[in-house]
Amino acid sequence: MVALPVAVVARSGLSGGIDAFVRALWHPVARAALLLTLESAAVMALVNAFMGTLTAYVLVRYRFPGRRLLNLLIDLPFAIPTLVAGLMLVVLLGPGAPLGRSLESAGLRVVYAPASIVLCLLFVTLPFVVRAVEPVLRELDPAEEEAARTLGASDITAFRRVVLPALTPAILSGALLSFSRALGEFGSIVVVAGNIPRRTLTAAVFVFGEVESGNPQAASAMALVLITISFAVLVLVDAFSRKRVHA
């Protein structure tokens, strides 16, 4: 049931021969879509690595009012349908919303622009880095960090030299997982990005468009590329987690 998809997509993508396969992917619209998807996912993964680590640190090390609510909010994107997530962003930042209008008059266009794609991806992958880093941080003895501070290290040095090295594998695998998840994101992006070819059309939306317009060969070619990248990233994550177990 599960190995089948790859075979089916490969068969359909290569149905016109290697030539047609390459031509489908080399089409300017397809190329731009793939590039946009990789770029948006990379930007998201970077922001996520930074903010996710910060959020996990705050959740584990500090006690403050509203901490449990914050903890719940982080899991909400797992439960909310991604299409609804996109709808939320349109309602908040769309041309009909007060916030969207004032941003636009300030020259900042979010909805129907590439920035909205990154925003969608940040929403749907919010838990990835936080939940990967949290358990590792909890296992880590705060005394080590404390000792570094007692020995005269600043907060930032103590974090960078003591905490960060222990967290790096978890941060990396969380960020890579979010990257892999982001490549296929469809529901939220399709309502927010406007799907303008060569500008805001992502690879997953491209696949959808090609299916709808009766071109399964191009859709499958793109699908095959997406699956390959996703799997490569997952293999990388697996290698990291193995290394962590051995360490």
Partner: peptide, 9 residues
């Protein structure tokens, strides 16, 4: 690891 769109395809 597979996009829902690809599952549909």
């Amino acid at each position: 690891a597979i996009s829902p769109v690809i599952v549909g395809l």
